[in-house]
């Protein structure tokens, strides 16, 4: 039930998980703002949910099946039309292998 303070280190960790580069000023600002928001959402701890099932979706979800018939799809050119960089019908990115993750 304690209010969790999001320190700058936690904010930096979360930003890394979310792949968001943030400046030192942003980290300090978000630490203050997110702490306030997390303190607010901590009021959910007042609610007894010990025998309550979670609801991830408002309506009953079920698998939706369709016949496996071929239908027209995009050409590689269409799929790549918005790509910032592409090469030989692929999305181009910096080298991924032989590299330590930070």
């Amino acid at each position: 039930m304690t209010t969790r303070n999001l320190d700058i280190e936690t904010v930096r960790h979360v930003a890394h998980l979310a792949r968001l580069r943030i400046s030192d000023e942003e980290a300090a600002l978000y630490a203050a703002q997110l702490s306030k928001i997390v303190a607010y959402v901590d009021q959910l701890n007042e609610v007894d949910t010990s025998n309550v099932e979670p609801t991830a979706h408002p309506l009953p979800l079920m698998n939706v099946w369709r016949e496996d018939n071929p239908t027209p799809s995009w050409t590689p050119q269409q799929a790549l039309q918005n790509a910032p960089q592409s090469q030989n019908n692929f999305f181009r990115v910096p080298k991924v292998l032989d590299q330590e993750s930070p």
């Binding site: 701890n45 609610v47 949910t49 309550v52 979670p54 609801t55």
Partner: peptide
Amino acid sequence: KALKVRTL
């Protein structure tokens, strides 16, 4: 926790 409160 939020998903459970959503049920309520």
